[in-house]
Design a binder for these strands. Structure first.
Lengths: 228, 228
DNA sequence: GATGACACGTGAGCC
DNA sequence: TGGCTCACGTGTCAT
């Protein structure tokens, strides 16, 4: 990077000369003084800026090119990635909280978890703010999980089309780590239809069914006509 | 910030002079040519670097001083903040998982919850682990944006099925703020097919086509067979 | 040899 | 006023 041979800023002689001329100097010396001061000052400024850039490079992983401009670009991309991450985590926290509010029985586990995360949510909102409740839940109009043959589950899902509805549906199915044979999403006239064929062993079918139902229901808007 | 009055880069005269002297110039003119080229090149470099710095300033909240070095410093601090955030969340997740393993009774709630978080942990590790491809891109196998009738665009897209491919596809279409008539995603045998019908006015059709193509291409894995 | 990235010194504007 | 920061043109390396 900024390590071309000329960069050896170790002149170390101007420091020795600084303050050598006092106020009783002739004009030539005075002007030299002024320009010299400016020079060393500028040197320090450049040095500081390069150090900062170096430090920036240090905190950003995966620097593509050691180029100055590229370092900044990579930093920008990285920050935006982190932003997206945070957005996802926050929506997940909201999902967890909504799941808690749906539950009524009080095991210690249910109570502790959101408490731990609530402070986190505050911090995230405070940090990343972007005013207005950004997170939109989905509105489930119909959800069916049926058995088809011996080892296949069919998930049929209808939602009203809101912002990020399709994103959230895809995310929840990704997160379930289930064996999806084929999946299909179709959006038209304010509705989102999703059909997923899932491979399931005989013994885990029932559990898987409940798992899918609860995961999707956790996304559900409390004001939705569906209540699970 | 970098908006002192001298910054008016609109000299616009060297551009008029560039190329004025051809190869049969006397030495003085040739050297002038060379230096002039270098000058405009350097100007562009400075301009690009400043634009990057400006963009960096845009993605970092809470800029203390508009100073060049300070902007970089704030960016560093911000990234480190996000890192710490992520570290905390990750330890929290680990905590939750260990808590889960301590429990033995099997209510569905206990089992389902960590499933949701486990994928998150993976994602965090994948993102934060420094080294190794951080960003999971998608692999576009085919992309066609065609016109259908007077005011309809049809986007046909084939990707190989990776983690979050469907999520990312949905996200990019959400972010485009276009008028989607109907959209369809189907996943089978390692492929993801997406078809979107977009409403577009006659005059904006071409622009919209390019916009969609570039937005999708931006997600593309460089190693993908598609090169756009 | 052309191109690009860099550090440098310098003059100028801003508290 | 002096101490900042900045943009500029230039020489110099490396590809």
């Amino acid at each position: 990077m900024f390590l071309q041979t000329e960069e050896l800023d170790s002149w170390d002689l101007d420091e020795a000369f600084s303050g050598y001329y006092d106020s009783s100097s002739p004009d030539g010396a005075a002007s030299f003084m002024a320009s010299s001061k400016n020079v060393v000052s500028e040197r320090n400024r450049r040095k500081k800026l390069n150090e900062r850039l170096f430090a920036l490079r240090a905190v950003v992983p995966n620097i593509s090119k050691m180029d100055k401009a590229s370092v900044i670009k990579d930093a920008i991309d990285y920050i935006q990635e982190l932003h997206e991450q945070e957005r996802r985590i926050q929506t997940e926290i909201v999902e967890l909280e909504s799941r808690k509010s749906n539950k009524k029985s009080g095991s210690d586990f249910e109570q502790d978890l959101p408490v731990l995360l609530r402070s986190k949510k505050k911090k995230i909102e405070q940090l990343y703010d972007c005013g207005g409740s950004r997170i939109s839940t989905i509105e489930i109009l119909e959800l069916r999980v049926t058995y088809m043959g011996e080892k296949t589950l069919v998930v049929s899902l209808t939602c009203s089309k809101r912002t990020d509805t399709m994103v959230k549906l895809c995310e929840v199915f990704e997160s379930l780590k289930i064996k999806i044979i084929t999946a299909n999403i179709t959006a038209f006239s304010g509705r989102v239809l999703k059909t997923v064929f899932v491979e399931a062993d005989e013994e885990e079918k029932d559990h898987l069914k409940i798992k899918i139902e609860t995961a999707i229901a956790a996304l559900n808007d409390p004001q939705s006509p569906m209540s699970i």
